[in-house]
Design a protein around this nucleic acid. Structure first.
Lengths: 258, 258
DNA sequence: TAAATAGTGTCTGTCAGACAGTATTAG
DNA sequence: CTAATACTGTCTGACAGACACTATTTA
């Protein structure tokens, strides 16, 4: 029996269907603070939020007006939520080709006053300089970066407080358990630059200690020394540069790392 | 400005909306093979699939009839996809209170011939004995367990081949990087029983070697020896029993485990 | 020369994993 | 006693992390 026959008799209206399908994006960046010559960076993990306009593009009062929210929007019928997130990120901030990952579905009844609306949440990692040209568009009256330390004190739209909480804990965990830290760094980086990224989410002594971390970076299987390449951007003494290489990282709790 | 005003003017039909919202469940179980007295178990990781009926409950030809598929169904408007998965698992297999976790969204246009249908995929871990009473219901003409080794050779419905692939790699990874292995085991277990579970997804020497693993289990922070409790179900020599305890497991690639 | 960052030398303790040997019990 | 599983004894090498010390450069 063919699907064609079955489809002819299929009633697409048999089940009640959602009123909307959206995509939200937690855009993370790391801002270097205290940038001076010959100093290693000190970094702060930030998340980008928009402030919802008081009126929508057609001049009518907006839902959750004035509150801070994750950027996002409705998924088109010819794309996946993931593609929609890529598109919205491009429209919203003008950045492209960056690390984007799905991390959760938010579909609790009542989460959106407009109806049964399902949202897929993603996180994106955008290097600091790429957010330079960001600006508010139709839907948003402001775009701003907030340190993850105090973003939860804002008045947040919908159920975005929960989504943001989840996003922060995901990125903190991913930074230490995967190599996403590379997305925050230039292609070639020093041990102290990687260290600064990791210190935004941990204060483990093995990472915080210069001597330990400088030694450790040489034994990490997914990081490679670039022989002969040095920089003086972080210190007066020329510093070795490293790069990430693709190497599978096995991460089991039942035995030591290799 | 209040949300009430904004909602009055909101047009829920402004965006095209999905034609359906479903939940799929990859139900895993581990079957002990070669069960004999005084022998440690040998285990095989299985996934439960249903075979789609030729006709639906109203006697009409069914979509993807005859093919094997993940159990699942449409999400009700008053529940989340996760709750729906719990409900369907109960209806489908009669099991409740088991480990269930979301692992992916499948929303590629065209994935379902019936229209724009979004599916949330979950995996569930069900102890062997709980699946005893399983049976085919309306929608399914058969229910069967397949070894993950050969399940991908079946004729699978919709995009379930991709979902099942993802599910298998997720559970393999989770078994080694989290404590979900406990869900496959009785409350009290021997080192060789845990070992058998882990050997379904790895052949690492540190786990495969009896002597190494028997020693290692004592130093795992999330496993506790039950002092004085022994069993002879796996050997003639009475064997120490262990239990899982809740302990956070930090899993970073940048430094050794504790 | 002082100050600051980037390392290296070295020691200590821990621990993984290999291998061999011992312990316990049913039949 | 044998066979099978469950351990324990012991050794080796690696390695993490601490701490002190050295190296390199600018101002």
């Amino acid at each position: 029996m063919s699907n064609e026959q079955a489809l002819e008799q299929y009633d697409v209206k048999k089940y009640r269907t959602p009123d909307g399908y959206t995509s939200d994006i937690a855009i993370f960046t790391i801002i270097s603070t205290h940038t001076e010559a010959f100093k290693p960076p000190s970094m702060d993990l930030k998340i980008m939020l928009i402030q919802r306009s008081m009126v929508d593009s057609e001049g009518r009062p907006n839902i959750e007006a004035g509150k801070w929210a994750l950027p996002g929007g409705f998924v088109d019928p010819n794309e996946t939520a993931f593609q929609s997130a890529i598109r919205e990120l491009r429209e919203e901030t003008g950045v492209d080709h960056i690390h984007l990952e799905h991390f959760g579905v938010y579909d609790k009844p009542g989460r959106d006053p407009r109806g049964w609306i399902i949202s897929n949440a993603h996180y994106a990692i955008v290097p600091e300089h790429q957010l330079a040209g960001r600006q508010a568009n139709d839907d948003a009256s402001a775009v701003e970066l907030f340190s993850v330390k105090d973003v939860l004190e804002l008045d947040l739209a919908f159920d975005h407080e929960g989504i943001i909480k989840d996003a922060i804990s995901i990125i903190q965990q991913k930074l230490l358990s995967t190599t996403v830290a590379r997305e925050f760094l230039p292609e070639h980086f020093t041990y102290s630059e990687l260290q600064a990224v990791l210190l935004t989410v941990t204060n483990d002594s093995a990472i915080a200690s210069d001597a330990s971390f400088a030694r450790k970076i040489k034994s990490l299987p997914f990081i490679q020394e670039i022989s002969g390449q040095k920089t003086t951007r972080t210190s007066k003494k020329p510093t070795q540069l490293y790069r990430f290489v693709d190497a599978e990282v096995n991460n089991t709790i039942y035995h030591a790392k290799k």
